[in-house]
Write a protein that binds this DNA or RNA. Structure first.
Lengths: 214, 214
DNA sequence: AAAATACATTGACTTATGTCAATACTTTTT
DNA sequence: AAAAAGTATTGACATAAGTCAATGTATTTT
């Protein structure tokens, strides 16, 4: 299909290689809230998200979800587990109706890994994951709740009008109560204000930035 | 030098390539407590630890070190920052007198990246890092202090006679007080006991294992 | 062996964030 | 427009782990 050609990580394949890839892969549709794989499952396939959204999370001792990452179309899903043939370290759940390209990993490895373009793509994808994980550590271990929220405002202030506060809280792995309390605190200290459309307006960028480092 | 040949990630290079590598690299010696690079520095070199130990940590808002990883001889240090030409996301400090092979990264990229063996080694090293980071997340975000300690006892009980409790606490990113209190708790519930040589003896393995999942 | 230093334990207190419940807004459905 | 359902805010309280200080126990230095 043409769709495969448009996926970043396969864009450099020639027609013959695309033909091969087609033979070892299949498009699957999922509804929102369906699970692609659970933490602990053994991987058999490599997935590329074609349409929709997929969130990846771990579950802590209290059964709460610790949000790790959200995949968007084009994303190459979960190579680590594939490479190492170890169980998935996290659970992947669709957050909207989605389509994935499901590729037989063993066949892929056999046919494509000598291709330097493909291995370069794999390196890139691993590096991207690596960044995500470092960010998770930064967010979860280094930053306080206030700092997480300050960072989110600086980097994603536009999301406040599209996402509900509960959704933002879950991305930040804090409770909606904490988010609400911190936002009020920021408002009374005139660091931010909220306009009529539930948009955040930053009044004191410097103070927000200080929270990240101090 | 012969030493390069013995490093896992360069073991497949032929003599000509080793000659090239020699030209773009140099061996540097460091003492314990010296810093190889600080969080925020821009990377110029790729390092391979030849001798000694190197710990990598981030610093949180209170100036405390969050231990991420310890490198041992043969370890390829910090490729992410190199690849992406972004600042180092953590600080690296030698914990014993050490030697590193310092390789000019730009030259390495130019001469060696077409080599599929090298790119495979890079993939392996990235995957290893990836695992470490997932472990850090597991340890820091998912587990409680009790669970961290239970895990450490299960996986590294022999370290209790070689390391001081302050060192163990710092690896687990908890305070020595918390470690001490939890160990006493485990002792009074007859989960572990301590023999004369400060060795941990596990009395109830099942209970320790339960703490990890529950 | 005594003194000095480093390390470990314990208790009282602090702090950040989560929990639960009540109430107040918004948005959607009827 | 009224009712219902979904979100957001607020308060009182709980909890895990850190902090600080005092004391006890090892280890190293003299």
């Amino acid at each position: 299909m043409d769709r495969i050609k448009n996926i970043a990580c396969f864009s450099k394949l020639d027609d013959e290689q695309l033909e091969k890839l087609k033979k070892i892969s299949v498009i699957k549709k999922y509804n929102a809230k369906e699970i692609l794989f659970y933490e602990g499952d053994m991987p058999k396939y490599l997935y590329v998200l074609l349409k929709g959204m997929l969130k990846v999370y771990k579950t802590n001792f209290k059964g709460q979800q610790i949000f790790l990452h959200q995949f968007y179309p084009g994303g190459l899903v979960a190579e680590l587990a594939n490479f190492e043939n170890i169980p998935y370290p996290a659970t992947a759940e669709f957050t909207s109706d989605s389509e994935v390209l499901r590729i037989d990993y063993a066949a892929l490895e056999k046919d494509f890994f000598k291709n330097p373009d493909i291995s370069m793509e794999i390196i890139k994808s691993l590096i991207a994951k690596h960044k995500i994980l470092i960010d998770v550590i930064q967010k979860e271990v280094i930053l306080t709740a206030d700092a997480k929220i300050a960072k989110f405002i600086l980097e994603n202030s536009e999301l406040f009008d599209t996402l509900k506060n509960t959704q933002i809280a879950s991305i930040l792995n804090i409770t909606p109560e904490t988010l609400s309390r911190t936002l009020s605190k920021f408002k009374t200290s005139s660091i931010i204000t909220m306009d009529e459309q539930h948009n955040v307006v930053i009044l004191d960028k410097t103070k927000l930035e200080e929270m990240l480092s101090l």
